[in-house]
Design a binder for these strands. Structure first.
Lengths: 244, 244
DNA sequence: CGATGTCCTTGATCTACATCATCGCACCGA
DNA sequence: TCGGTGCGATGATGTAGATCAAGGACATCG
C-alpha cells in the first residue's frame, strides 16, 4: 500500500503512518499487548478524534459498529429508565476501552465528561485483528475480567452501602485508578458533577453534597481548588468505606 | 496414556474416558465451543462433583486454582462487608461457568442453593486449553461479555429501581434465563430463599415478602406449589419492571 | 454590568423501606 | 406425638435518604 519511504523522511513517514508507535499511553491500553511491528496494523484502522465536554459518543440501542480507546479525558457510561432515572455504570479514563461488552447494539450511552481524545476503531476490523493476534484477544479478556470484578464491587456498593460508605469508596476508587495509571494518587481530581456522582452511587445530588461536607467537617477530606479532593486521612477513609 | 480399547468394550470405554462427549448440557456451556474430538482434552482434566444444598464451593479471598461448570442445580455468588452485610452478585444455573473473572484470588464466595452437579477444572490446565483452542477463549470472552451486560442491568436495578420494580425484574430475569436454556419459561421455579432474593436485590426479606404479596393481590403473579411463581400477566410485569 | 443560567450547598419536610416484633406453618428428629 | 427450628408473612414503628425549597458562587452574554 504505502510506498516504502527512505532516508531522512523515513522516520517521520513512519510516525505519520503509524501514530500508534509514538502513543504515550500505549502500555495502559489494549494496544500494549502488541509488538512495535504489529502496531502498524492498528494504525491502519485507527482514526483519532478529539471531542469537547458533554458530547455523546454513542447512544444506548444504536448499532455497535465502533469501539474506542480513551487516550485522554474522562467519559461516563450510563443507562436510562423510561421515566428518565439514570444509572451511571462507569467512568472511563486514559487507557480505558469502550465496547468490551460486544453485542449488536450498545447497551449503554457513552458521553464525555471533559474534553476527550479517542482512538476510534471500526468494530469489524478490530474483530479481524483479534483473530490475527491472540495476544490482543487475551488482553481484552483480561480487561473484561477486571471490569467484571469492578462491577461486582459496585453491586455491593449500590445494594448494601450507606451514603457515607458510597462516597468514601468512590473517592478511594478514583485514587486507586490514578495510581494504577502511574499518576499521583492524592489529591484526586474529580472532574464529574455532583449529579454524575449521584447517578453513579445511586444517590441524589443533595445527599452527595451533604456527604462531602460531612466528610470534610470530620477532617477526612479537604475540597481544593479546581475540583480536586485531598484525601487527608486515607486510612480512616478506607475504614469509612467498609463500614468500619 | 489409556490403552486403546477394542471391540465391544470400545464404546463404553470411550464414554468412560470421555464423559464430556455424552454431556447433555454441553451446548449450553463453554464446552459447546469444541468439536467432539477436541472434547477428550477436557475430559482428561475434568472431575465431576455432586454437592448438596447450602454448601460452600469456595470462599472469597481463597487461591483461585479451580474453575467450574454448573451442569445442574443452582449456585449463588456473594460478597460480604466486614459487619456481615451481604450482596449476592449473581445466581448460576445449568450451563453457567464459575471463575470468569480470573485473578489470583476468588473475588466472591460461591455457595450452592440446591443440590448441584459441577464440572471441576484445575485452572492451570484450563488456561493451557484456552491457549490451545482459541475457540474456547472466544467463547469465554463472549460469556464474559454477557455477564458484563447483566452486571450493568443489575447496577441500574440496584441504584435506581423501587422494590416493586426490582422484584418484577428479578422474576422476569429468571424466566428469561429459563427460555435461553430452552426450558419452559412459565411458571418460574424460584429455588432461592426470600433472604437470598433480598440480598440479590438490595432489600430485606420483609420487603421482598411484602412485594410478592402486593404483586399477587394485584393479580400479576400467583404463588404455586413447590416454590414456583406463575407470571400471570407477563406484559404488565414488564411494565412494572421498567417503572411504567 | 445587570440579567440569566448552572451548579453547589443547606434547610425543612416527607416517605419508601428498614427495623423490630409476632405468629403460623412445614419439617424433623426423638 | 410432641417440642424444636427455620422460613415466610404481616403489623407497628423508626430512619436514612429523597424531595421540596431557597440562597449563594460563578460564568456567560446581551
Amino acid at each position: 500500500m504505502a510506498p516504502i519511504s527512505i532516508a531522512p523522511s523515513a522516520r517521520n513517514g513512519d510516525v505519520e503512518n503509524n501514530p500508534c508507535s509514538a502513543c504515550p499511553v500505549r502500555d495502559l491500553t489494549v494496544c500494549g499487548a502488541l509488538e512495535e511491528t504489529e502496531l502498524s496494523k492498528m494504525s491502519e484502522i485507527v482514526r483519532t478524534r478529539r471531542v469537547g465536554a458533554h458530547r455523546t459518543i454513542f447512544s444506548e440501542g444504536e448499532d455497535a459498529d465502533s469501539v474506542f480507546n480513551v487516550t485522554s479525558g474522562t467519559v461516563k457510561l450510563y443507562k436510562l429508565l423510561p421515566d428518565g432515572r439514570r444509572q451511571i455504570t462507569g467512568f472511563l479514563f486514559t487507557g480505558d476501552y469502550i465496547g468490551l461488552s460486544m453485542h449488536e447494539r450498545y447497551a449503554y450511552t457513552a458521553e464525555t465528561v471533559t474534553p476527550t481524545s479517542l482512538c476510534h476503531f471500526p468494530r469489524r476490523q478490530m474483530d479481524a485483528l483479534l483473530k490475527e493476534f491472540p495476544k490482543l484477544q487475551q488482553r481484552l479478556f483480561s480487561m473484561a475480567s477486571n471490569e467484571l470484578e469492578a462491577a461486582q464491587d459496585q453491586m455491593l456498593l449500590l445494594g448494601r452501602k450507606t451514603a457515607k460508605e458510597k462516597v468514601a469508596s468512590f473517592l478511594l476508587g478514583l485514587s486507586w485508578r490514578l495510581s494504577r495509571r502511574g499518576q499521583k494518587e492524592n489529591p484526586v481530581p474529580v472532574p464529574m458533577s455532583r449529579s454524575d456522582i449521584a447517578d453513579y452511587l445511586g444517590l441524589t445530588t443533595e445527599t452527595v453534597s451533604r456527604t462531602f461536607t460531612a466528610l470534610k467537617s470530620q477532617g477526612v477530606i479537604r475540597l481544593l481548588e479546581g475540583n480536586k479532593v485531598d484525601l487527608v486521612d486515607c486510612r480512616r477513609l478506607e475504614d469509612v468505606a467498609e463500614g468500619g
